[in-house]
Simulated scan of single mutants.
Amino acid sequence: MIRVFLPSMSSPVKDFVVGVLASEGFVYDLEKDLDLDDIAANYLQNGGIFFVAFINDIIVGTCAVKKKSSDKCEIKRLYVHKDFRNMGIGSSLLQKALEFATERYKTATLKTDTSLKPAIKLYLKTGFSVIKEENRVVYLKKELN
C-alpha cells in the first residue's frame, strides 16, 4: 500500500532511508540528507509530495517529488528495501510520483549513482533520458505531458 507521508512517519521514514543508503554502501550526508529532518517542509509544503510504501505496516519503499521551479520538478528518494526488490514496488512508487508530477510540471529530472544499475534501468524504461554523467552521478530528464 502506498500512502502520502504524514508527520507521524518522520522518524521511521528517516531511519528507513538511512538504512537503505547504508545497505548500498552510502553514508548519511549531513548536507545532502538534511531534507529528511523535515520532510513535510521540504516536499509537501513546497509543491511536492512524498510517498511511502508499506507491507503489513512496515515501510518498504519511498519516492518523492520536489519542486525546482514553476514548471520543473525533481524525482528524489526512490528507495526500496533490498528484501522487497523486484516486486514492482519501485515501479509503483515511481509511477505515483510521475502521475503527481505530470499534473503540475512540464519536466522531471533526477540523479542517481552510476553503481545503481537496476534503478537506472527503471528510469530509462519509464521514459527518462540520460543528460550527462560525471563524478559517478547519472543525471536524467523526462518531459511530462
Rank of each mutant, 00 (worst) to 15 (best):
K132P: 09
K82S: 12
L34Y: 15
E31N: 14
S92K: 12
E134K: 15
D38R: 04
L93I: 12
K68L: 10
E143L: 07
N135H: 10
L116R: 05
E133Q: 15
R3F: 01
S115E: 13
I75H: 01
Y79Q: 06
D15K: 08
R85F: 04
G90H: 10
K106C: 15
G25Y: 11
P7R: 00
G25I: 02
C73N: 04
R104Q: 09
L78K: 08
T62H: 01
K66H: 08
S115C: 12
T112R: 01
D83C: 13
V18A: 06
Y123T: 09
V65P: 00
I55P: 03
R77G: 07
T62Y: 02
I131R: 03
K125M: 07
A97L: 03
R3M: 04
D113A: 13
V137I: 13
S129T: 13
N42R: 08
Y105P: 04
K67P: 10
T126P: 05
V4Y: 10
D35I: 13
L34T: 11
A40K: 05
V27W: 11
E134M: 12
R104W: 10
R3E: 13
E143K: 13
A108G: 04
G90Q: 08
R3Y: 09
E31H: 14
S10F: 13
G48C: 09
V130M: 07
D15S: 15
E74Y: 09
V4H: 07
V138G: 03
S8G: 12
V80R: 00
F26T: 09
